Amino acid sequence: MARVLVVDDATTVRMYYRDVLETAGFAVEEAVNGFEALEKAIEQRFDLLVVDVNMPKMDGYAFLRQGRRMPELQAVPAVMISTEAGPQDRTRAFAAGANLYLTKPVRPETLAGIATLMAGAAS
Results as ranks from 00 to 15, higher is better:
F35A: 04
V106D: 01
A85V: 05
E22W: 08
L64M: 14
E72N: 10
I114M: 11
A31T: 05
R107D: 09
A85M: 03
A122D: 13
P105F: 07
P71H: 04
P56H: 12
S123G: 12
M118R: 01
A10C: 13
N99R: 06
L38Y: 06
R3Q: 08
G113S: 07
V20Q: 03
A27V: 07
D47E: 12
V76W: 03
P56R: 13
G86R: 06
R69L: 13
A119M: 10
P87M: 06
A24K: 01
V106I: 08
V76Q: 02
A121S: 08
E22P: 02
F63N: 03
I81H: 03
D9A: 14
I42M: 15
M118K: 01
A115H: 05
T91I: 09
F46K: 07
E30Y: 00
Q66M: 15
A10H: 10
R92I: 06
E84Q: 06
A10V: 13
L100S: 10
V51G: 05
A112H: 05
D52R: 00
A122V: 09
T103W: 06
E39W: 12
V13C: 04
A121K: 13
R107Y: 14
E29K: 11
G113V: 04
V28Q: 01
E39R: 13
M118Y: 02
A27K: 04
G97Q: 03
L64R: 09
K57P: 13
Y17L: 09
G113K: 08
E72Q: 14
A122T: 04
P71R: 00
N54L: 12
P87H: 01
T83G: 14
Q44G: 10
I42E: 15
G113R: 07
L21S: 00
A37D: 14
